[in-house]
Design a protein around this nucleic acid. Sequence first.
DNA 1: AGCACATAGTCAACCTGGTTGCCTAGTGAG
DNA 2: CTCACTAGGCAACCAGGTTGACTATGTGCT
Lengths: 161, 161
Amino acid sequence: MLVADQGEVRKPGEVALLFAMVYRAMTDHMHDLLAEHGREPLRPAHGYVFRYLHRTGPVTIVELAAQLDVTKQAASKTVAELVEWGYIERCPHPTDGRAQILALTKRGKEYMRLADRLWGQVEDHWAGLVGDDRLAAVRDDLKAYLDSRYGDERMKLRPVW
Amino acid sequence: MLVADQGEVRKPGEVALLFAMVYRAMTDHMHDLLAEHGREPLRPAHGYVFRYLHRTGPVTIVELAAQLDVTKQAASKTVAELVEWGYIERCPHPTDGRAQILALTKRGKEYMRLADRLWGQVEDHWAGLVGDDRLAAVRDDLKAYLDSRYGDERMKLRPVW
DNA sequence: AGCACATAGTCAACCTGGTTGCCTAGTGAG
DNA sequence: CTCACTAGGCAACCAGGTTGACTATGTGCT
């Protein structure tokens, strides 16, 4: 596999700035692909709700708020939107009269599967540029940084949005 | 140099999610370092203002707005804050009575130099984990993606904040 | 059973950081 | 001089969060 170009010394802040730009570029790329499928982009916060519900199964608003690292009210607002758009449904909690159970609807699962496929295409595009091995190395280096900062807590870190 | 661990297949969306988390982690890391120096964190938008002024020299609000990809009013608000905090100063435009020239103050330059140094430390931490070569490869792969999407326009892409 | 305390979710108001539409003062071409 | 345009600011608005308070429900203790 190709060795990195050694000619250019890394400037302070360069990688951080590139990071912010690439994140933006990837998000825009994703929105372009969604548009090609006639789908409106949802906000990253929405995407994290979908991922969390898919990984964990039905949860309450309090649990969702904790996962997204926002207040109950903010989680409630986000949920209200997704309910209105038909991506999430509310069910009574089996044992707690106060709480509600939130779950992805069929439509929500479809959107999430499409989004995963399209994110995969964004990453495939990138892998096509630099090689699967290099992108896997990028991923591993990202994980190394997160592990160094958060260890086992790293999956709890709220992503930027 | 070590070859990437081949055992783990990339999952769709994995790199994108890692991206959002690492960006968050790097920003938090940076805030921790600033706090160690008794400095308040500024918002990323502020940091981009500093960088732009430093690279380009004094500019007007309209030019700044274009660079940040926000409205004149938003740029004006951000500038008003930085003026209030003593990082930027306004001067009359030499030839246009309507316009003002914005420039970094000494204090602004000091903050920016410190911020660059601290971003360098964030990146050095990462380089220490994965190796300079690997981080240089990450940087090159980030650039490859941006080039593929924006070519020469890539430096004009507004970063996420 | 009753009570004190805690919690789930919602409401209204607020805040931040943007946008929009409009305004005044200034610019430049004709 | 006139007119179309621009620079920057004002006020109101919006989105997406927070705060504090509220009601209904739950829990644990006596």
